[in-house]
């Protein structure tokens, strides 16, 4: 179990929303770099070395592509480097491309961490109270997906063993796959009626349904939440005062460094590093425990 995922779903959701929204919408180079750094460290803690290496191999080309593509779409900026097809390629557009790539990858990485940490049951828990029927639908759908995948394989195998729809012809195979799809649909819909009978047998549809969850809001959740809110306030204050404003076009310019601005950078930096610190603390703690044992 990862340390960070042990927090209460609400705490986690608010954390991820704060970081993601800021990283996505507050276009300031320091903020963006902080977001990338935090996400990268966190992702590296959550994954093993092999996965991290795979990630790096995937994101570097993406980074280069996103950075280089921008000057093709955007001809703003005053510092013209050269002309291509009669269009100016500017230094500003180039730098903007890099900023765009940094943000893009930061957002993707944060989303990845979110997917690892916020498992479906946490998500369902969060919305179970407000939209009970829909959260039940979601829970059922998540239960059905792997079941149906297995059914697809079973039907395909059975058909192949009869020598059906496995010739070289592309249309024949496509037809087979489509037929398999509708057969599994029929099979599953038919079974679904049994599921709804089992729901009804256990009292589904009675008035005053309650909502159970195994999650408990613990003191450390409150602590993290409070910390999160404070840091977020610090960051947003800086932005609200206009101390984080930064322009790439027509010329790179930004507000000069001030106290609220610096405070915002520090706050957001700490916020993005929180999960990494929590994971690291846990690791060291366990090492220490083991050496004591």
């Amino acid at each position: 179990m990862k340390a960070f995922s042990g927090y209460h779903p609400l705490t986690l959701l608010i954390y991820f929303l704060s970081v993601l929204m800021t990283a996505m919408f507050l276009w300031n180079p320091v903020i963006q770099l902080e977001a990338l750094l935090g996400a990268g460290l966190f992702a590296a803690m959550l994954q093993n070395g092999k996965e991290t290496a795979g990630d790096i191999l995937f994101y570097i080309p993406l980074f280069i592509m996103a950075a280089l593509a921008n000057p093709l779409f955007s001809h703003n900026g005053v510092t013209i480097l050269f002309f291509m097809n009669g269009n100016p390629v500017t230094a500003e557009a180039f730098i903007y491309g890099i900023a765009l790539a940094v943000t893009l990858i930061a957002v993707l990485l944060w989303c990845k961490c979110y997917s690892i940490i916020m498992s479906s049951d946490k998500f369902i828990y969060l919305f179970g109270r407000a939209i009970p029927k829909l959260s039940l639908v979601l829970s059922m759908a998540l239960r059905f997906v792997p079941l149906f995948k297995r059914r697809f394989h079973k039907v395909r195998k059975a058909q192949r063993a009869m020598g059906m729809y496995s010739s070289k012809s592309y249309t024949d195979r496509l037809k087979g796959t489509l037929l398999t799809f509708s057969a599994v649909t029929s099979w599953s819909l038919e079974n679904a009626m049994e599921t709804s009978a089992s729901m009804k047998a256990r009292g589904y549809g009675l008035a005053g349904r309650s909502n159970f969850s195994i999650f408990r809001f613990a003191p450390h959740d409150f602590l993290l939440l409070a910390f999160n809110v404070l840091l977020m306030l610090g960051t947003l204050m800086g932005a609200a005062f206009g101390e984080l404003e930064f322009y790439y076009y027509p010329q790179i310019s930004g507000s000069s460094l001030s106290v609220p601005g610096l405070l915002a950078y520090v706050c957001f930096g700490v916020l993005t590093l929180l999960p990494f610190i929590i994971e690291l603390k846990e690791k060291i703690l366990w090492k220490y425990f083991i050496s004591k044992i």
Partner: peptide, 15 residues
């Protein structure tokens, strides 16, 4: 909503 509608919707999503 009848339980059967919920299950049907869930099945169609999952499919």
């Amino acid at each position: 909503a009848d339980g059967r509608v919920l299950v049907t919707v869930a099945v169609m999503c999952a499919l």
